[in-house]
């Protein structure tokens, strides 16, 4: 059993390790040749490969939000165009980014932690370092960059798909005609909303990939350790994603 002192200092030690890892990654950005090839591979894995599940989740959440909003708008005093005024900003400002974030935390975060964790416990990372290669630049930088670059693309896709699905459900289930839905969305549209969503998506992309890289890179203890890192990467990514979500809302709105 680790001593009380060790257990108390562990969070500070982890935070220091995380900051040092990111500092090293940041200073490795200039070595583009080192991670160029890996960057494109990771962009495909983070972005293109995640597209089907992101599209599906966004479509369902857009549709469900529309149906539930319509269900709550029972008063004849509230115009039906309000449904569009609620669904569209919800997708742009919150759902598009958060749903994509949760999917990436589970899908990409777990994968990154498992990959790097396995490389750690099988000494592949030591082998890279022993060759004289900057393992952080080679492994961490392309994964974090891919997250930061591809998350906004997925966010925009998810938002459009979610709104589109909401629109279709509203029309075909007879909840509200497309014209009214769009009118409501236009009436309450704020030009800052998409920027807010984009800023969120950049931050979420960074949070998920950097935390997962940290968990994987410092894995200890064989197969059990890889399992632990993978779970922690998914869970901690979701937790910090929610904290970042609240922080950005307080800071920017």
């Amino acid at each position: 059993m680790p001593s009380l002192q060790l257990r108390l200092t562990k969070p500070f030690f982890s935070l220091g390790q995380y900051v040092l890892l990111l500092t090293k990654a940041f200073t490795s950005l200039g070595e583009f040749g080192l991670y160029r090839r890996n960057l494109f591979i990771q962009m495909v894995r983070v972005g293109i490969d995640s597209l089907p599940i992101v599209v599906m989740a966004a479509a369902f959440s857009g549709a469900v939000t529309t149906v539930q909003t319509a269900y709550q708008m029972t008063s004849p005093l509230i115009p039906r165009s309000t449904i569009g005024a609620i669904v569209v900003p919800s997708m742009i400002m919150e759902l598009g980014a958060v749903i994509t974030g949760f999917i990436l935390a589970g899908r990409v975060g777990a994968r990154i932690a498992a990959e790097l964790g396995t490389m750690r416990v099988t000494e592949q990372i030591d082998a890279l370092e022993a060759m004289g290669l900057n393992s952080v630049g080679y492994l961490i930088v392309p994964r974090v960059l891919a997250g930061v670059l591809m998350f906004p693309v997925l966010y925009v896709t998810a938002t459009f798909v979610g709104i589109g699905a909401g629109l279709l459900v509203a029309e075909f289930s007879g909840l509200v005609p497309i014209g009214e839905f769009v009118q409501g969305a236009r009436n309450y549209f704020q030009p800052f909303d998409p920027f807010f969503g984009l800023i969120k998506s950049l931050v979420f992309g960074f949070v998920i990939t950097s935390i997962s890289c940290y968990m994987g890179y410092f894995t200890e203890g064989g197969a059990e350790g890889v399992g632990r890192s993978t779970t922690q990467a998914a869970v901690m990514s979701c937790v910090y994603l929610l904290i970042a979500d609240l922080g950005l809302a307080i800071l920017l709105l």
Partner: peptide, 23 residues
């Protein structure tokens, strides 16, 4: 520095216990 250490490491070849091949 880390950069200099990497130069020193390039004079070494290391055979790790499990091989540490990139899978």
């Amino acid at each position: 520095s880390y950069r200099e250490l990497r130069q020193v490491r390039r004079q070494f070849g290391v055979l790790f216990q499990g091989g540490a091949l990139f899978d």
